[in-house]
Computed example of a mutant assay.
Amino acid sequence: MRLFRCEVCGQLLYFENRRCEKCGHALGYLPERNNLMELEPEGDAFRAVGVEKRRFRFCANAAYDVCNWLVPAEQEGEYCLACRHNRTVPDLTHPHYLKKWQRIEVAKHRLIYSLLQLNLPLESNEDREGGLCFDFLADPSEQDAPKIMTGHDEGLITIALAEADDAEREQRRNDLGELYRTLLGHFRHEVGHYYWNCLVRDAGRVSAFRAVFGDESADYGEALKAYYKAGPSADWQVNHVSAYATSHPWEDFAETFKHYIHIVDTLEMVGAFGMRVAPRLDRSGDLKSQVDFNPYRAYDIQDMVGAWLPIAFALNSLNRCMGMADAYPFILSPGVIVKLGFVHHLVHRAAPADPVRAAVAERREAGAPPTAAAVG
């Protein structure tokens, strides 16, 4: 995620801001410019400051304070590039559902931001059957009815509304023995399944996938039963970024995809702040880091991992000073870095052709295997 600034008064802004508190201008995110735009009313729409001869309006979901994205005034549809993927939203007559939906939409919009910056294919269910769409569902009111489970079915991703309740999500994290559980993490994991379909299965790369992640033809249901019964092997961190990643190659890919987006998006913000890490006690220089590249366009996974590990160590150290859990309590072993590299390569192959990037990637892939790296 990048930093944003009001071009009228210079105030720094959050991605979710709808109004500049310093100068009072209304704000809207314009995906085509990747910027929060200052708005001036013009008739029944708005004119974005600095964008001549064009008028915009807010996504229809702005009426519920869940979206600040803009759409061209002449566009026929009501919804922005992010909200057009919503298939089902909560019943807003329920007094508590709107607040939970607002939290879900914050995470979803940040997900779509990342997918757009990576130039990944982003078709909705209206574009084609099996396109990306979301159901945000509340648990049934009947006590004996099964609860909604967050999950995926081809392009349809279901997010349980209960996951927007911090106490409920923390309880589930503890019950499942997870190190980490967030709404944004759910979105990034579940969309990883969608991109397995797009970038692996439909693109004819299953053989290459199996060489890195294993045979996904193993019975998925039985694999999950075995995982929940016996748990992961003692040495699971050698090749997996999380315990759950050991349950099945599909879950391994989705977990790796999630962590790839975690790393890329956080590194972009680190670079936007001009942050650098250079510990005074690190005489070897191994923990020096400065993000002087665009991680959304990085040619080499090693550049990203090399920058990420010192940043993660610093974040964890700061959190511990505040009595909080580690921000990134995961180990990136050589085996995990290979898998991150596989995802990185898939993502950039899916982006518009860039001969320079492709040539560099080929040279990198012909080099030495990654060295060990860990955060813990």
Rank of each mutant, 00 (worst) to 15 (best):
A230N: 15
A226H: 15
I159W: 02
R173L: 05
R205Y: 12
R201C: 09
L156S: 12
R188F: 01
K147D: 07
A167F: 10
D165E: 03
A211I: 12
A208T: 11
L184Y: 14
L176T: 04
A145R: 10
A208I: 07
W196N: 08
F213G: 00
F213V: 01
G204Q: 05
V238D: 14
D219Y: 08
A164W: 00
R169H: 11
G192M: 10
T158L: 13
F187I: 04
N174Y: 05
L161Y: 07
G151F: 06
D215P: 09
V191E: 00
E168A: 14
G221M: 11
G185R: 03
P146H: 05
D219C: 11
N197Q: 14
L156P: 07
K147H: 09
L199I: 06
Y228L: 11
E190W: 00
Y195I: 04
Q171P: 12
Y227E: 06
E168Q: 13
A164E: 01
E154S: 13
A167M: 13
A203W: 07
G192S: 01
Q237E: 10
A167G: 01
Y180C: 03
E216Q: 03
Y220D: 04
Y180R: 03
H186N: 12
E142T: 12
D144P: 10
G231P: 04
R172F: 10
L184C: 11
D215T: 12
A234W: 08
E154C: 09
R201I: 13
E222P: 01
R169C: 13
W236K: 14
A162T: 09
F213P: 01
Y195R: 08
A164S: 01
L156A: 13
R173W: 01
A162P: 10
G155P: 10
V191I: 02
G192W: 01
Y194H: 15
L199S: 13
